[in-house]
Amino acid sequence: MIGGICTKFGDGVNTDVIMPGRYLVSIDPVELAEHVFEPLGPEVQARVRNSPVIVAGFNFGCGSAREQAASGLVGAGVVAVVAKSFARTFFRNAINTGLLAITQADASDAAADGVEVFVDLVNAVVVVGDSTYPFPAYPESLIEIIRAGGLIPYVSQKLSDGGVA
């Protein structure tokens, strides 16, 4: 299980708020982390830096296909986002950067700002306080990417094993 204290957001958190376009000149997650949620101000930024989980409403990560929206969160120490729904570009970028993106509406409702939220990928449940919330298990191929730490380490491993197919 991975997780910890969460920061809670509402619906429609977009990529330009997560990672403003002006910082896309970098692909270093640590550098990018400085600017995660910058449009929302230093207080929100400080909270996110101290919470390994983000909980949100509908359509988290809508907007741009910028991968840095996901990798910037990883750089800031976020390990999982639990939301009511995700924009598909963000969902793919999350998997590809080794960030868990879990769709679980009830867990999103149950989690208040600052409470502990954990994700158990093997048993496909989100744990909020004493309650567990099941979610449809990731397909095995996606679990492999997550386990490798993202798409590039995964492909790298495949290449050194002697084949990509």
């Binding site: 296909a65 996901a70 993202g150 798409l151 590039i152």
Partner: peptide
């Protein structure tokens, strides 16, 4: 459809994506 840069890189090499 749009994807991130890691996915494009992987597809440059592999030729396919899920």
């Amino acid at each position: 459809t749009g994807v991130g840069f890691s996915e494009v890189t992987a597809t440059w090499v592999c030729g396919y994506l899920w």
